[in-house]
């Protein structure tokens, strides 16, 4: 496409008229820290949310086991839940939930069907996510967290080899 085909439009800059710089109420470092503290203060709420998500995840996984003919749809449901869990964990210092949620999504995203091994691997991810929350493995989970990730990776590698 040539430049002649491109029309450039300068939109009205309405934001600059509504935003002032500095002064009381401006977003300084303290405001950012306060906002981060608000997130940290929601950690108990997060644990309630994630427990609900884990129940939904287990239910969806059970659904996959009992309905392999519709594996694609069943896995899409699992993907949606795991994707939400991935997107929330790290905000509340549950980085392992973000890592495991992401790995689970990557594992199932292109699958049209679910083999026995696939189902087993998905189950392992679900179990690992439950362990992280049950044992309150915050941050990288320390030695126990490393054990969960490495142990899971080793088993998945062995199963899918």
């Amino acid at each position: 496409m040539s430049d002649e085909d491109v029309q450039v439009i300068k939109p009205p800059n309405t934001l600059s008229a509504k935003v002032s710089k500095g002064g009381p109420g401006a977003v300084d470092l303290e405001a950012i820290e306060r906002a981060e503290a608000v997130i940290a203060g929601m950690a108990d709420n997060y644990l309630e949310w994630v427990e609900e998500d884990l129940v939904k995840l287990q239910k969806s996984y059970d659904g996959l086991i009992g309905d392999r003919d519709n594996a694609k749809e069943r896995m899409e449901t699992i993907f949606g839940i795991a994707h939400d869990m991935k997107g929330q964990g790290g905000s509340f210092n549950y980085d392992l939930m973000t890592i495991l949620g992401n790995d689970l999504c990557r594992f199932i995203e292109d699958k049209e069907t679910a083999s026995d091994v696939d189902v087993e691997v998905i189950g392992l991810y679900v179990s690992a996510m439950k362990v992280v929350i049950a044992q309150r493995m915050e941050g990288d989970g320390g030695a126990a967290g490393t054990e969960v990730l490495n142990g899971l990776a080793a088993v998945v590698e062995k199963l899918t080899r």
């Binding site: 935003v19 002032s20 710089k21 002064g23 109420g25 977003v27 470092l29 709420n45 939400d84």
Partner: peptide
């Protein structure tokens, strides 16, 4: 980091996850 006052801005948040 520049310090802007955001109190006059209107935000619309769109997400299917209530959390």
């Amino acid at each position: 980091m520049a310090e802007y006052n955001l109190e006059r801005l209107n935000f619309l948040i769109v997400d299917d996850n209530k959390h």
